[in-house]
Design a binder for these strands. Sequence first.
DNA 1: CTGAAAGCGCTTACAG
DNA 2: CTGAAAGCGCTTACAG
Lengths: 342, 342
Amino acid sequence: MIIKQRLPDRKSKVTVKEVALRANVSESTVSRILRDKGPIADATRDKVMEVVRTMGYVPNRIAGSLASLSSNLVGVIVPSLSNIVFPEVLQGIHAGLESNGHMQAVISISDYDSANEESMIRGLLSWKPAAVLTTGFEHTDATRRMLELSDVRVVEMMEIDSDPIDIAVGMSHRSAGCETGRHLIAKGYRRFGYVGHNWESDHRARLRHEGLKSALAESGLGIAAEAVTGSASSVGAGKEMTAQLLGGDTPVEVIVYSNDDMAVGGVFHCMAAGLSIPSDVAVFGFNGLELGRELPQPLSTIRSNRFLIGKTAIDAVLAEPERPATSTKIDTGFEVFAGETA
Amino acid sequence: MIIKQRLPDRKSKVTVKEVALRANVSESTVSRILRDKGPIADATRDKVMEVVRTMGYVPNRIAGSLASLSSNLVGVIVPSLSNIVFPEVLQGIHAGLESNGHMQAVISISDYDSANEESMIRGLLSWKPAAVLTTGFEHTDATRRMLELSDVRVVEMMEIDSDPIDIAVGMSHRSAGCETGRHLIAKGYRRFGYVGHNWESDHRARLRHEGLKSALAESGLGIAAEAVTGSASSVGAGKEMTAQLLGGDTPVEVIVYSNDDMAVGGVFHCMAAGLSIPSDVAVFGFNGLELGRELPQPLSTIRSNRFLIGKTAIDAVLAEPERPATSTKIDTGFEVFAGETA
DNA sequence: CTGAAAGCGCTTACAG
DNA sequence: CTGAAAGCGCTTACAG
């Protein structure tokens, strides 16, 4: 259904030139006052600001950026927004941007596709952003070259298991996988199952899986049964894959999930199937989402610090706007949350 | 922990001028070729494109936008990213942007504060965006004036219960509230409870509440008991408020929640308290999130079309880049999802 | 403390 | 089909 209705008319734009004319000063003076730069007589400032206000002048940042060869834009690329993890990173970025100045985030979604990432970064760079924040280390060669040759600051967010172009902010997913294994072994579990999602796209889930395997191997153990979906992680996929794993003929004591969404699906499956957690089967996730904490039994998991990653990324580039000659890794850490499901 | 390491050196930028010089043509010709505009000899095009490639030329869109007095930026303002609803709207916007051309979204988060919205819109407009998409109808007077006077297209997303500045895309939250009431009355419920979150900020939740009340009034009914938190909606808040409502001395047969997150909290509370749904108490949400669908008993709720709202918003402004003299409302609708919890 | 001038890197009529 | 010139709206040395 579409409804139409009359609107009021609009008028034209005001430029520094108009303001300068009306205030009887030069354009440079207006510019200086607006950017709070250089010494200005109070009387002049008052007069100009008065004119600015009455004319409703809004500076054109496009012209400003071209003249100053810099912009207040920060390019951000995340692989997805359906996984709540990335909105949380964006919130951290937003918080960091706010506390600083008048930076604006330009956000693109790559859909876990590095060819998309390449064209998005190309588009972003054409805006001469102050910095580019992207996700992970999996880029095309062309992307890597563009970023290396540009002189914007670059942050690769989420993981620190490889060498960064400029700065990496995140945690070691391999270590998180290891810690998961060690923690569960210490709790006495020996028969491990794994339920995962598509890691062609989610490289970090694979790192955690590798870490888990190596921790188990340290104790002469392995993963007894696995169920991995080809699709993205979701509560629904977690339910389905859990049903599949438990329906197989290899009994397991504990299931490690590729993340909390999948694990919550596992919990829901168990509820519906009348299985007790953790006595019939224990459940362990990854991320430490609010949802898991609020389940009737709090989900056992590892807390990653998504908000902190975004915040730290911005803080790092704003602290030093020029790219230095050395790369940096910043570890935002993680911690085991014992919970009640494992 | 911070680790440092040497990086390779970088070099300087290439402009149209350089490209023109090397290709032995004028700057205008390079510009035309790059924008596929006007008639060009094949030989010239090939020569220029060759140079563009070997020099790794990336056009500066800031200069381009200033010269053409237009940009490929679309400003988007959402109140929050913690409520999954808004990331879903952003996904719709992103999908619409992609299918179109090379538009980029500049995203800001207002935290449900219209003073924030005002300064964000001011910042956005200074980039001469092709359009501004914001949320709801609650703006400051200054915001409304800026948007009315600018000639960008403006979409107010999510609701259509008021008059738009230019275009509104969304659903009637008042009607959704009504439908909820009628549906539950038809199912035989008579004693209603309501669990809500802070509607100082979430105006649409209030509209639904009003709609619900009016539907109940039609049948001579009312809301017997309410529990409303002062904080934002969340699963945790839903649990807590449900406990409070059910701990009171007014018995209810069904609880209507301000949204699915709150309702899922209600379901978790009932599970933990050993209450059967819907026989002991029925639960009804709003939004139709994936999470609710995957609960052991699918959540009864109303499906809003968040992705569609974002997609429709972009499609509408791209279809007609000039703001017309009449405003438009586009209803993306909603539907009752019966589920098993009410 | 203030102004005149050049210039940022493109695009856009206009002319040929 | 192509080029020379003006200009988009600012900022930035430079001079005074």
